[in-house]
Design a protein around this nucleic acid. Structure first.
Lengths: 333, 333
DNA sequence: CTGAAAGCGCTTACAG
DNA sequence: CTGAAAGCGCTTACAG
């Protein structure tokens, strides 16, 4: 039994017009006289009528629904991206279906099935990777598929990626320019495409310059892991004096460990560069030099990619190094 | 023109059964033979069929959609609550429509209209306050309405609230027990119900104990405001030695200002208590004693409240003081 | 500009 | 257990 709610029929009766006229009154650009539309509007207002988008979605090519599929949505960077994405979607007259997953591909599959069930116009995948056949099912159901910061491709799906490798390279250059002698790379074991690309950019640049790098990888991508990374690096005999953390969360933990457990001063004893530019990077306790994830640019690229008929190429977005106080300034002259 | 997608009719034809049989095969508990169901399943799998929940929502009493309406969703506390809420909703077989608002009641109204348009089973309001007539429209459309941490009531709507006043009182008791001589209250000017209740609990307890309290209120609820609050309090001639911040974000800013701008040591020179227990409160740089927002309890209460036929009373959830290092330990007896 | 009619994809009595 | 039929609330040719 359907839920009781006021329908176009009720409005039509009250306004003394046909159901068709009601429908037209709520469709921008439809051919209705101003007079009819006014009568309908009054009746609708009085009854508290709202067009049923479920029914409308059945008839139109678009439902106005877009699925946002992501893991760890309470994390600073993720939540910032999600906020931008959902806000921007609303501006565009769409509404976001938020589906959170753990990292397993299985839960991405479930999320995508949900999206299909509600016939979302598009699905934006921020975490995990849908398998090929499911991706095809999405397309077959007329859905656009946008992958954010995923390294694999899916035929028919658009990708939006950060230039992580370039950032890794420029992190290396920045630490060298600051005069750091013993370089380190600190990352988690998550092994996501973004992390790997940052690591490889950094290491490739070091290799090209003939420089040694101490590499430490531990656990999940979290503040706690940052503490462990800091402890691991600071207890080494060849304690580094310049480190690139593949994430701000890791950098914050690493800085706290270095300061509170080893009484190291930053940047005097240790220069640190992070990645993401989460809010905390700008807090005075950290004042972290880091790469800004251009949330707005990513969001625009994603919106462009999910428009019907958009091209499926990869949209590459550049990051920008935000200079703060965690990296030693090179000696003048 | 509707979007091309595989329908029950396609599956029925391939499986050699009626459309009714297909429908039943996807309804738990419906009367279909195992044999028919199996045939349908095979055909559905092969075609990549998924029940259209838009159409289903038209016929059933529930759509499976729940609207989450919130502002500042990239803020640590908000995003944690949203993550819990949307995760729990999924477990319950529902899916979250994320609608973010600014604080204006107008944008809450727009959000609610969207919810009605998609016939969500319920709307959970975390920010702002819907006006009475719109709240009634929601109910008339068969929607449940759950207000989280809102002080006003709406007839027919359920509320979930934290016992903010109790927390305020116990913050006072904790600072007194720590031996603080000059107490302060630091808050923003946002004036939300939760903030006001915390402030009043603290001030009422102080009044009852005959103690003076320096009150400082500035700007929005943010880390930056915390810096300003810290600066304002530390420049007073009667510099406080114990402060209750109505939010962790404010507390983090205040601590940073006290330390970096006034070289104050915490808790030696200043004891600080926050509220929320955001992730950063547990970071070594802050190690903040604070009240934990029991996100899980709030979430359970919200889910209980949005079940069809649930009672509309207010569900009051208690907070818990998490002791860390930002409050001086009282001298042992 | 307007309305009657067909149809989107589903579910649910109803009859067998 | 099974299927034909009616109907959920809408939109879109079609004819006037």
């Amino acid at each position: 039994m359907a839920r009781a709610s006021v329908s176009a029929k009720d409005v039509a009766e009250l306004a003394g017009v046909s159901r068709t006229a009601v429908s037209r009154s709520f469709t921008p650009g439809a051919s209705v006289s101003a007079e009819t539309r006014a009568k309908v509007q009054v009746a609708a207002e009085q009854l508290g009528y709202h067009v049923n988008h479920l029914a409308r979605g059945l008839l139109r090519a678009e439902t106005g629904l877009v699925a946002l599929i992501a893991a760890e949505i309470d994390t600073p960077y993720r939540s910032a991206l999600l906020a931008a994405l959902s806000g921007r979607l609303q501006q565009a007259g769409k509404v976001a279906l938020l589906i959170n997953t753990d990292r397993s591909d299985d839960s991405v599959a479930r999320a995508l099935r949900q999206a299909i069930s509600y016939r979302t116009d598009a699905a934006v995948v921020l975490s995990g990777m849908p398998d090929v056949s499911l991706a095809e099912t999405c397309l077959r159901n007329g859905m656009r598929l946008v992958l954010i910061n995923r390294d694999e491709e899916r035929p028919g799906a658009a990708r939006v990626r950060l230039d992580d490798a370039a950032a890794g390279r420029s992190a290396f250059a920045a630490l060298v320019a600051a005069g750091c002698a013993r370089l380190a790379l600190a990352s988690s074991r998550a092994g996501t495409p973004s992390l790997v690309a940052r690591e490889e950019g950094f290491l490739a640049a070091a290799r090209a310059a003939g420089r040694q790098v101490t590499v430490e990888r531990i656990g999940a991508t979290s503040y706690r892991t940052g503490l462990d990374l800091g402890t691991a690096l600071m207890t080494r005999p060849d304690r580094p004096d310049g480190v690139f953390c593949t994430t701000d969360l890791l950098a914050c933990g690493l800085m706290d460990a270095a300061r509170h457990r080893f009484a190291a001063a930053i940047p005097r004893d240790l220069s640190v560069i992070g990645f993401d530019d989460i809010a905390q990077a700008g807090w005075e306790a950290y004042d972290l030099t880091t790469f800004r994830q251009p949330v707005d640019a990513l969001t625009e690229a994603a919106l462009d990619a999910l428009a019907p008929g958009a091209e499926d190429h990869t949209r590459l977005v550049q990051t920008q190094l935000v200079w703060r106080g965690s990296v030693r300034r090179a000696e003048p002259g």
